[in-house]
Amino acid sequence: MTVQDLTAQKEFVPVHVGKTADREITKTFCCDLLSIAMGKAPEGCAWITVMANMNTLAVASLADAACIVLAEDVHLDETALQKAAEQDISVFETKLPIFEAALLVYRKINGE
């Protein structure tokens, strides 16, 4: 499943979809502490978190995540939104809790 495919999910609102939206999502990763995500987020993952912060973008970029999914209806502020566009990082928002959001991505990856 690609990042682009995720835009078709009505539960996920695309905030910014990058130029590399045809990128394959390889794994689902859940973590809210950036210090852990920094070392552990797998390359190409969809990272589900409630940490809507400028630093989330930097960590996603460092870990080379395919996209960020902000769960629980949290939102990036204006400056962070701009940064996501500048750095071309794909970000989605969802009202779903972390587990449900991750499960949905997991099922899509596994073709369920």
């Binding site: 210090s35 920094m38 070392g39 930097a58 970029s61 460092l62």
Partner: peptide
């Protein structure tokens, strides 16, 4: 501090 090298292009 966690031992991570800064990447100026990102941070």
């Amino acid at each position: 501090i966690l031992n991570i090298k800064n990447r100026e292009d990102i941070f």
